[in-house]
Design a protein around this nucleic acid. Sequence first.
DNA 1: CGTGTGGTTGATGCCTGTCAACCTCTGTGG
DNA 2: CCACAGAGGTTGACAGGCATCAACCACACG
Lengths: 242, 242
Amino acid sequence: MANRFIQKLQGFAHLADHDVRALETATAHPSDFDARKHLIREGDRPGSVFVMLEGWAIRYKVLPAGTRQIMAFMMPGDACDLHSAMLAEMDHSIETVTRATVAMIPRKEMDRLMDGHPAVARAMYIAQLVDEGTLRAWIVSLGRRSSIERAAHLLLELYVRAVRVGLIVGGDMELPLTQTVFADALGMTPVHINRVLQALRKSGAIEMRRGFLRIPDPDGLTRLSGFDDNYLHRRLRGAQDK
Amino acid sequence: MANRFIQKLQGFAHLADHDVRALETATAHPSDFDARKHLIREGDRPGSVFVMLEGWAIRYKVLPAGTRQIMAFMMPGDACDLHSAMLAEMDHSIETVTRATVAMIPRKEMDRLMDGHPAVARAMYIAQLVDEGTLRAWIVSLGRRSSIERAAHLLLELYVRAVRVGLIVGGDMELPLTQTVFADALGMTPVHINRVLQALRKSGAIEMRRGFLRIPDPDGLTRLSGFDDNYLHRRLRGAQDK
DNA sequence: CGTGTGGTTGATGCCTGTCAACCTCTGTGG
DNA sequence: CCACAGAGGTTGACAGGCATCAACCACACG
């Protein structure tokens, strides 16, 4: 059965059987990591594309004062961007949050794969666009949304992304992130995100406990947070695309 | 003489004469815009790559409440990313801040140019990486830096970028942005950015007046803001790069 | 010389950070 | 089976950064 990465790419472009087989081959020998292990650190020389098959990871940066800012969540199905595999040096770190299974595809192999499978290249390209849109959405959240809106927006983002890779079972989403992690993503303190989540729970907007999230009224939460999932569903222009 | 766009790309990759000539041809017929004119709006279908030859523009998004968040500044020499020209729909708007001269290169022509001139493609690629790094740097600023650090960081970013495209004359940088614009980029109110800039001026860290900026002590400001310009000077890996 | 945009100032209050406990659950070891 | 340790979550008191509201000033332009 196709792994979540393949499943996600299939949502972006039609993949033929040989495309899927090539992706299966490329991700056939993943590595396992414990929680809180670095996949790569700031300053390291990147070389592979990381593909999350199971578990969660974060991109983050630590400031001189010791505070941490998370810039992106990687959930099962996500790949770190192609670009960074070409850089001389990472400007941030990537660390697992939970135990994780990660396929590490060497850049050369990824290049070959994309050269030989245009549909895969196309899907990876869209994934890249979505990631960029997500960065911009985070800037908007951090800059102009209240803490409640910000938290609601992030939860919805993660929820929508999880739906797409089949991570939601019976309306419940497995969300193994601590409040401290949320705080570092949302630019708040752990104390404050705790109060914000309590307010969201009390209002009935979310149900959240011990690593699980349920959103009883997605529409209400969408309105509350000003969420527009357009950025998560990018489409390329018509069929004449190269 | 090469325009600032070409000048910037030359800083990223060695361009042969024929590369430069091709770029000159592509940007030979720019359009002029008044201040506060949209180059493209959220929801529009993009088609061209915009190249700023003169003047400034912003990428921004307006929230339901009417507040605005700026996600990027485009100064002379900058191009909007290649990617967005491929999208079905813009998820944000681009608007001039000042009078501006903008070359609009149709996507097909840009594709041809990059296909025929690998060095140009390479330089554009690095420019893209820098833009992505800048988005991440903004997330860090908005999430975890104090308002003073945040303002100082942005001013330094703009300063360093301006140096590279030859926008600094005699230590003075032309910076035709209003305090309201800064506020919308930094997630503050106009009143507060005003006080922050006053504090920075009073401390001697910056001299700023009527559209001009001077940074007497870049090192001091760098320390104050935790600025690390690594993200603005991306390099690809060694010569074996495709 | 009026008008408008952008910049500045002061008063006030709330949102959110800080500090410091304390609680709850889970896993571990005796 | 219980005691303990540690991580994560929760609560309260308090302070301060920043938003808000409302004027007022300064300069450019017609």
